[in-house]
Simulated scan of single mutants.
Amino acid sequence: MAKQKAPQWLIVLAFMAVYIVWGTTYLAVIYGLRGFPPFMLSALRYLMAGLLLLGWCFIRKEKWPGWQAVRSCSISGIFMLVGGSGMVAWAEQYVTSGQAAIVIAAEPFVFLLADRKRWKEYFSSWFIIAGLLIGFMGILLFFGGSDAASAPAGDFATQWIGYGAILMGTVFWVGGALHAEGRMEKGISNTVSSCIQLFAGGICSSLLSGISGEWGKIRFNEVPAEAWAGLFYLVIFGSLIAYMAFTWLITVRPPALVSTHTYVNPVVAVLVGWVFVNEQLSWMQLLAMVVILLGVLLTNFPSYKLSFNQQRA
Rank of each mutant, 00 (worst) to 15 (best):
A149H: 12
K186E: 15
V70R: 13
A149E: 13
F15V: 13
F301P: 06
L52W: 11
L47P: 01
L271P: 03
C204H: 04
A229P: 05
G202Y: 02
N278Q: 15
F143W: 07
G138C: 07
Q280G: 00
I30M: 10
N300M: 14
L113N: 02
E92C: 10
G138Y: 08
S42G: 11
N309W: 14
L140S: 08
Y122S: 09
W90C: 07
I75Q: 09
S97D: 01
S97K: 13
E279R: 08
A105T: 03
Y94V: 00
L240A: 03
L52F: 12
W215V: 08
L281R: 03
Q93C: 01
N300A: 15
L178H: 06
Q159S: 07
L140P: 01
A225E: 11
E214C: 10
A6T: 14
I59S: 02
M1S: 12
G187F: 13
F301M: 14
W274Q: 08
P37K: 11
L13S: 15
T260Y: 10
A256L: 04
I75V: 13
H261A: 06
S307L: 04
S303H: 14
N300H: 15
I134T: 14
I188Y: 08
L208W: 05
S193G: 05
A288Q: 02
A157H: 12
G182P: 00
D155S: 02
E107Y: 02
A101T: 00
F58M: 08
G187Y: 14
L198T: 01
A149G: 04
F136V: 08
E185H: 13
R116F: 15
S212H: 06
I241C: 11
V192G: 00
M137K: 00
A313F: 08
V268M: 06
Q8E: 13
A165G: 04
A229W: 03
P65S: 11
V110E: 03
G55A: 06
L54T: 07
V223M: 12
R219Y: 06
L13C: 10
L140R: 09
W56E: 03
W56V: 01
S97T: 07
K5Y: 05
I11C: 03
M137P: 00
I161L: 15
A149K: 13
W228F: 14
N309Q: 15
A256T: 07
V252P: 03
Q311Y: 13
D115N: 12
V12G: 14
R71E: 08
P266A: 11
I104H: 06
R253M: 13
W9I: 12
W228V: 09
L27R: 09
L306E: 15
V70P: 01
E181R: 11
T25H: 09
T191Y: 06
L249C: 10
S97E: 06
A114V: 03
L133Q: 00
R118T: 01
S97G: 08
W283E: 12
D155C: 08
